[in-house]
Computed example of a mutant assay.
Amino acid sequence: MITSAYIHIPFCEKICHYCDFTKFFYEEKMADEYLVALENEIATTINKPRQKMKTIFVGGGTPTALNNRQLLKLVQMIEHYFDVDQVSEYTFEANPGDLTKEKIKILKNHGVTRISMGVQVMDDKMLEQLGRLHRIKDVYQNVNDLIQIGLTNISIDLMYSLPNQSFEGFSKTLEEALQFNLPHYSAYSLQIEPKTIFYQRYKKGTLTKPPEEIEADMYEHLRKEMRDHGYISMKLAILLSPDMKVSII
């Protein structure tokens, strides 16, 4: 029996230099057509309205790249086919900067219980090098808006072993991110994937990652800081309580 649903929204305002997920530049007409096709796909797959699920995850791309009208259509569509009142966790991925107060209210009013934000690094210069549109101030603004509106189950993604990133730089990012005291953090080492801008630069010899020993130091520092701040790994969390502070590392 299917107990979880993943819904993919493949649109972004800008394509990040490291991303190899299925994605397209956002265009309003294309997004409208995609939502029609998505509803047809869901209707074909789901036997009846208000299907019960344990979890629903809406990822991308960037689901919050949709405009207000499209985002409302999406959550209403999900409400029609899935019993969102009964899910244990209903997550939307979001990018800092395009998560407006209006969009937060749409998500909260239609049953979303968790926001996963792609922060990546707390360094404006490095965010620009990654091809990200947001800046550090947008992270603070969005976390504040989410808490004020009542969506407090917030997760942020971080990356390490980035081009030109020092151990000290990653340590500063981690320290600043942990000050939010959020219930969930995820951290990943950069993987240079084919068909990305970073891959092309890597092949040309114009992009290098930190040495493996520095990457290992970053990972060990990450583990220590998470433990020191009361976070446990996802594997252990599954065995214990869903209310635990969790890190994926």
Rank of each mutant, 00 (worst) to 15 (best):
residue 14 K to M: 11
residue 101 K to F: 00
residue 140 Y to E: 07
residue 217 D to H: 07
residue 66 L to H: 09
residue 142 N to C: 13
residue 122 M to N: 06
residue 192 I to Q: 15
residue 84 V to M: 12
residue 65 A to H: 10
residue 193 E to I: 02
residue 12 C to K: 06
residue 146 L to Y: 14
residue 138 D to Q: 11
residue 30 M to V: 07
residue 76 Q to M: 11
residue 196 T to A: 02
residue 108 K to Q: 09
residue 121 V to H: 11
residue 68 N to V: 15
residue 17 H to F: 15
residue 84 V to R: 04
residue 125 K to H: 07
residue 172 K to T: 10
residue 107 L to S: 08
residue 12 C to N: 09
residue 161 S to P: 08
residue 37 A to H: 12
residue 82 F to D: 01
residue 98 D to G: 10
residue 206 T to H: 00
residue 200 Q to S: 11
residue 30 M to W: 10
residue 193 E to D: 01
residue 62 T to I: 10
residue 108 K to E: 11
residue 22 T to N: 13
residue 176 E to S: 15
residue 22 T to R: 03
residue 58 V to C: 06
residue 213 E to M: 05
residue 182 L to W: 12
residue 59 G to C: 08
residue 129 Q to E: 03
residue 135 R to W: 10
residue 59 G to W: 14
residue 6 Y to P: 02
residue 84 V to F: 07
residue 216 A to P: 04
residue 87 V to C: 10
residue 107 L to V: 05
residue 105 K to M: 15
residue 15 I to N: 07
residue 84 V to N: 06
residue 219 Y to H: 03
residue 215 E to H: 06
residue 181 N to P: 01
residue 83 D to G: 05
residue 182 L to E: 04
residue 19 C to D: 14
residue 49 P to N: 04
residue 196 T to S: 01
residue 213 E to W: 12
residue 142 N to T: 13
residue 119 V to D: 05
residue 167 F to R: 09
residue 117 M to W: 02
residue 178 L to N: 07
residue 225 E to I: 03
residue 150 G to V: 07
residue 7 I to R: 00
residue 219 Y to T: 03
residue 8 H to N: 14
residue 7 I to Y: 00
residue 72 L to M: 12
residue 116 S to I: 08
residue 77 M to F: 11
residue 48 K to P: 00
residue 130 L to S: 02
residue 115 I to L: 06
residue 5 A to D: 00
residue 208 T to V: 10
residue 52 K to Y: 07
residue 92 F to D: 00
residue 139 V to R: 07
residue 230 G to H: 13
residue 181 N to F: 09
residue 29 K to F: 04
residue 182 L to P: 05
residue 184 H to Y: 08
residue 66 L to N: 01
residue 92 F to Q: 00
residue 51 Q to R: 09
residue 247 S to G: 11
residue 80 H to P: 01
residue 221 H to N: 13
residue 32 D to T: 06
residue 211 P to E: 03
residue 232 I to D: 15
residue 207 L to M: 05
residue 72 L to C: 08
residue 236 L to E: 15
residue 108 K to N: 11
residue 150 G to S: 13
residue 155 S to L: 03
residue 50 R to P: 00
residue 218 M to V: 04
residue 63 P to E: 03
residue 131 G to Y: 04
residue 158 L to S: 05
residue 183 P to R: 03
residue 71 L to D: 02
residue 103 K to D: 01
residue 153 N to Y: 02
residue 56 I to E: 01
residue 133 L to T: 12
residue 86 Q to S: 14
residue 227 R to S: 13
residue 56 I to Y: 08
residue 236 L to R: 15
residue 3 T to W: 09
residue 72 L to D: 06
residue 131 G to A: 02
residue 7 I to W: 03
residue 12 C to S: 13
residue 40 N to E: 15
residue 142 N to G: 04
residue 188 Y to V: 15
residue 67 N to D: 13
residue 35 L to Q: 09
residue 249 I to R: 05
residue 27 E to A: 14
residue 176 E to A: 10
residue 145 D to L: 12
residue 27 E to T: 13
residue 8 H to S: 08
residue 217 D to M: 14
residue 51 Q to I: 04
residue 122 M to V: 15
residue 104 I to Q: 02
residue 153 N to F: 09
residue 36 V to A: 08
residue 226 M to P: 15
residue 70 Q to D: 03
residue 132 R to C: 00
residue 71 L to T: 02
residue 239 L to Q: 14
residue 42 I to F: 06
residue 207 L to E: 02
residue 159 M to I: 10
residue 240 L to G: 01
